[in-house]
């Protein structure tokens, strides 16, 4: 499944989607950035409530295919630009991280 398909299938909000055709394969949930860098794999969807500038950096360096912000969290305007510049996809949802993981588990 691609990031765009994921977004459309589940009706997620688009914060930034510079690379809609990236493949999503598996996922990781976490807010501690080093934990994410140590455990998340390339091409996964990363579900988090952490939404500062470091989130974008960690997503870029970890090569996750998209960040999925849970609980209605979003990025401020400047960070949206940073995400686009760094080719980092960021989606958002009002659901909790638990609900999102349960929802996406069978799909990706």
């Amino acid at each position: 499944m691609t990031v765009r398909e994921l977004q459309e299938t589940f009706g997620f909000g688009v914060v930034a989607m510079p690379q809609p055709d990236r493949t999503v394969s598996g996922g990781y949930v976490g807010d501690l950035l080093s934990w994410v860098m140590g455990r998340a794999q390339a091409d996964q969807v990363w579900i988090t409530i952490m939404s500062n500038v470091n989130t974008v950096a960690v997503a870029s360096l970890s090569d996750v295919s998209t960040v999925l912000l849970a609980e209605g969290v979003t990025l401020d305007e400047e960070l949206v630009r940073t995400a686009e510049e760094k080719s980092v996809n960021v989606l958002c949802s009002d659901l909790s991280a638990f609900r999102l993981a349960a929802l996406l588990g069978p799909a990706v």
Partner: peptide, 15 residues
Amino acid sequence: SLGFGAGMGLPNMKR
């Protein structure tokens, strides 16, 4: 509070 300080930095560098 910024998401750091999990005590995983050096272990990740080694990993």
